[in-house]
Design a binder for these strands. Structure first.
Lengths: 132, 132
DNA sequence: ATGGAATAGGGGTATATACCCGCGTCATGG
DNA sequence: CCATGACGCGGGTATATACCCCTATTCCAT
């Protein structure tokens, strides 16, 4: 009758963990979502908004707006490519430095989560992405 | 070295499941978040914004704005109590009907999730709220 | 070569969320 | 009985997210 709302549980867990990661990353003025974007741009070197959206499995317009924030903070810049429709994104020098400084903070958050949750939960969470 | 970002996994899982619940609830024009609010107001009968925020474990200002949406949709209304600072929320008749119609849709989403995830994952997710 | 389809992106609108600040109200200690 | 502090809430600002529509560009088939 009263099974817990799985959606609510996951949304709450996502909010709580996001707060933990954001708290760690606040030292370099990044949010977890921004860190993830910087990481993907760093890995790719250059990529378009649509490619980044596909990598993140997020809506293209969401990525477009999130990238605007990164551009305002001078972490990412656009470079033209042959195609007049697209613009390739890449990290600025500031972005590279900020990302490098953020990595150990992110790692600390990871470690905190690993210390908080039990191994079964870690395993279950890791398998979620494949199941949904 | 490259452990997956637990925060990203949970955020993605929350987005995906929210989309599933929202798709089911779209039949009555509600989102999962709105459904949860209506459910809590329904259970409580009457309660203030701060009480609702505490129940949801969300920021008071967040609840205030989400309740404004419900009021615009004529699902929730404010009633004055003795205290001039507070206003008590309760469901409107429309809100009661909408919530009643939404319950089986929510249940269908629950069932879909139970069919998608394996029991271990369900257990792990359920235990998350206590751990975080 | 041209016209229609496909692609890339921006902008509008809406919701969900959090933090901070200020304002009004209440309650309580002198 | 009044001043101070506690409380409740709205509003400002910022981010994250999604859907829709429009425009510009490119590509491809005829």
């Amino acid at each position: 009758m009263d099974s817990p709302c799985y959606c609510d549980l996951l949304r709450t867990a996502a909010r709580k963990t996001t707060a933990i990661y954001d708290r760690h990353l606040a030292g370099v003025g990044l949010t977890l979502a921004q860190y993830k974007l910087l990481k993907k741009v760093d890995r790719a070197g250059k990529l378009s908004i649509s490619e980044l959206a596909a990598l993140c499995d997020l809506d293209r317009s969401t990525i477009g707006r999130n990238v605007q924030v990164l551009e305002r903070h001078d972490l990412v810049e656009e470079t033209s490519c042959g195609d007049g429709r697209r613009c390739m994104l890449r990290l600025t020098e500031t972005g590279r430095q900020r990302f490098a400084a953020a990595v150990p903070l992110w790692q600390a958050a990871q470690t905190e989560i690993e210390a908080t949750l039990n191994p079964d939960q870690i395993t279950a969470i890791t398998a979620l992405s494949g199941a949904l």
